[in-house]
Design a protein around this nucleic acid. Sequence first.
DNA 1: AGATACCAAGCAAGCGCTTGGTTTGTAAAT
DNA 2: ATTTACAAACCAAGCGCTTGCTTGGTATCT
Lengths: 203, 203
Amino acid sequence: MTQSHILQALIAENLVSDPDSARGRLLREAARLFRDKGYERTTVRDLAAAVGIQSGSLFHHFRTKEEILKAVMVETIRLNTALMQSAVDAAGSDREKLRALVRTELESINGQTGEAMAVLVFEWRSLSEGSQAEVLALRDIYERLWLDVLQSLQKDGVLNADPFIVRRMLTGALSWTVTWYKPERGGLTLDGLTDQIMAMMSL
Amino acid sequence: MTQSHILQALIAENLVSDPDSARGRLLREAARLFRDKGYERTTVRDLAAAVGIQSGSLFHHFRTKEEILKAVMVETIRLNTALMQSAVDAAGSDREKLRALVRTELESINGQTGEAMAVLVFEWRSLSEGSQAEVLALRDIYERLWLDVLQSLQKDGVLNADPFIVRRMLTGALSWTVTWYKPERGGLTLDGLTDQIMAMMSL
DNA sequence: AGATACCAAGCAAGCGCTTGGTTTGTAAAT
DNA sequence: ATTTACAAACCAAGCGCTTGCTTGGTATCT
């Protein structure tokens, strides 16, 4: 199961938009703009211009501006949950599973879906409370993947700290890479970065 | 040198505002509002109402809304750099110095200056480029404190990863605590949390 | 022929900030 | 002790602009 196969499957189930469709292109441009300028500073006119239509025409596809933000977040979580699940399943030992989770999340944050992942972290408060609850429910599935592996590592005495806290630390640490990690500079690859994180935990 | 003595010294040097002054009260309310609603969603009318004046009167104290955001950030960094410096100086071994840095930063993030620290992390992009450069220069002093200790730990073989990367991971992990750490819930104290972080790094 | 996708125009509300004038605090001059 | 002077702090009103979103109509595709 390659990454593109997972994406294809999700598109077929209508869980994420085809990147080549009008909707998919808009969501990608929206993620980029939201990350670069922030949700509030991005106007519907900016969004429309990015895909070459009039601002009013946006509301034929989405009822409100917020609905666009929510769609970016929901589709990103869906895709990344599937990618993580696949990565965990493919790994052998628990230590390898953790490495796969770290590596996959780094790739989500710093790769293709990076813009959308940054939006997920930094534009959270721009969602209405109702939408926050919806997105939160999706995140729970995603988080269970991590906790299962971390708890197993703790039981075996490999990990010395509380799994819940370790996961929260990793969430912050990995999210933050988006602000400084530039693969082209310094020659540090994603694999190298993953190694450093494992080494930091003496794992 | 207690925390309040450090604050008093900075006030005397006019590097941070007295929390009891009109300016100090406004900055504290601004930090709270910016954290809760975000900078863009907070209007000058919100800010004025929070300190009980008319919106136009704000511009007697600050020339623009952005100047308020910048002042919140600058004063927060100044205060916390002084607190960190003091904490490092008081500690004995390098391991204790690192623990003091972690503990102090957690306190900055989750204590009195927590609102302002969250603003520093999440509202960064709302600053103009010029202001960003100014604030960045102040952060450099702050960061050198961390790097000196981490490099020393690496040299002694206690730390297995690159100091720059470790600091960046810790920045993310510690900043992120603001989104989940609630001392009243769960009974986890700041000292306990600090222990967990050191344990996570097997230190 | 009927939906789907879009445009051109603009509305109502809210935004940061300005303006002209009034009150308040302070301190020297009488 | 009272007056005078002046700046700092504030208010009331509103200007000009941008915002998210609506409306009525026109292409385009099946």
